[in-house]
Design a protein around this nucleic acid. Sequence first.
DNA 1: TGATAAGGGTACGATTTCGGACACAGCGAT
DNA 2: ATCGCTGTGTCCGAAATCGTACCCTTATCA
Lengths: 236, 236
Amino acid sequence: MFQLRQSDSRNRLLGALAPEDFARLAPALERLPLHLHETLIHAHEPLSHAYFVETGLVSLVAATEGGRIEIGLIGCEGLAGVPLVLGTDRGPFLGIVQGGGEALRVPAGALREAIDASPALRNVLSRYVLSLMIQMGCTVYANAELNVEARLARWILMTHDRLNDGAMPLTHEFMAMMLGVRRTGVTAALYVLTGAGMVRASEGRITVLNRDKLKDLAGDTYGPAEAEYERLLAEA
Amino acid sequence: MFQLRQSDSRNRLLGALAPEDFARLAPALERLPLHLHETLIHAHEPLSHAYFVETGLVSLVAATEGGRIEIGLIGCEGLAGVPLVLGTDRGPFLGIVQGGGEALRVPAGALREAIDASPALRNVLSRYVLSLMIQMGCTVYANAELNVEARLARWILMTHDRLNDGAMPLTHEFMAMMLGVRRTGVTAALYVLTGAGMVRASEGRITVLNRDKLKDLAGDTYGPAEAEYERLLAEA
DNA sequence: TGATAAGGGTACGATTTCGGACACAGCGAT
DNA sequence: ATCGCTGTGTCCGAAATCGTACCCTTATCA
């Protein structure tokens, strides 16, 4: 069994850590695959691990009898298991794998010890939490004020950031659930985005063609969370 | 100049602190009035203080050219200035006083030192941040799935928790802005809530008559954040 | 006392989104 | 070849919400 090196990780948070902080976590990190539609984080159950996402996508989801809505999106820039950073071991939301990939997981106890031991590590993770809060705040705004097209544009941008992949495997059905709209609403909105040259859509795949136009459509709901995240990395 | 005692504060977070943690903050705490419509926290500007709310209401607001939407509500249970808890001095949202009252403010530097010095204090404030995140997550859900009536019911419940006052001074215009709907939409929704015996509304005042019915209407969007908060206090 | 502003009630057509149904194409399995 | 599933496109009436305008009441204050 060998020690994971910092350069072996594609997670941007782990990459931003001071070498000594990475070394603190490294012995406890374990690489594991993220399977599509796997529920990584269960509501109201103790979290055994936090997950530094390497590749793929994890959705933070609020679930009720009435339906499921995505409230947060986590990719290689982030960490699933925020309650562990904030001093408790459970939360009311789900973490569901929406795009297959890999993660490095760390046991709850080891993460807690490392956070308590290192102010710098605490700072990086806390500020990631802040960027996630900002993302959620922008989603609140988007859900209240934006039409389906603009919300979809924002969501595609956010997903694109996290997959930086040409053709993203996204079905209308899936996007409809994430945004809390009808599937046919997504079909219609996507038709508009396609016609405007923003994306290309075919057989369960979305290809981003023009990020600037998508940003124009999403307005101020895309940007603040990303800016805060970059500021975090720049200062870390 | 005398030292503030823990029993002098009506803020529930301050009340939940261990005496030594309160003592750590007390010398830096300064009582000040919250004036209606005052902007306590400005977007993208360094926060000089964090505010433990004693009485009154502070709204966390996302503002764009397109409008303003409330993304979080803070009262005597909480703290305005969350970025300071998370290791930075600014954020993209506004904090606006929506109900006059008082707060105990603490300078950013003093708060940071106290947090770094005390894991227990850190824990209380971090978990408050989590409850605020949960509140925001529920708001995302509510804005995506609930109609105006249910959203209004939820918002009245949350406000009532924080003012525990019979007659809350809330205009239709104001509630409309907070929820991101038309004023007449609030008028109509309020008419329904009144007809169902949930509230009484008159001349800029809302009186809660039946919390259970309001909870039924709000569904699962009211409760999770409050439960997490109570769990925090119980364990602190 | 009268003017003015703020809060609230009502109405109307326009627009968005909903909820559901149906059709069709591609694809894998039997 | 055929069945059945998934993903997609299209259509319809119904409902919610929007945007706007107008009017009334009440409170405040000169």
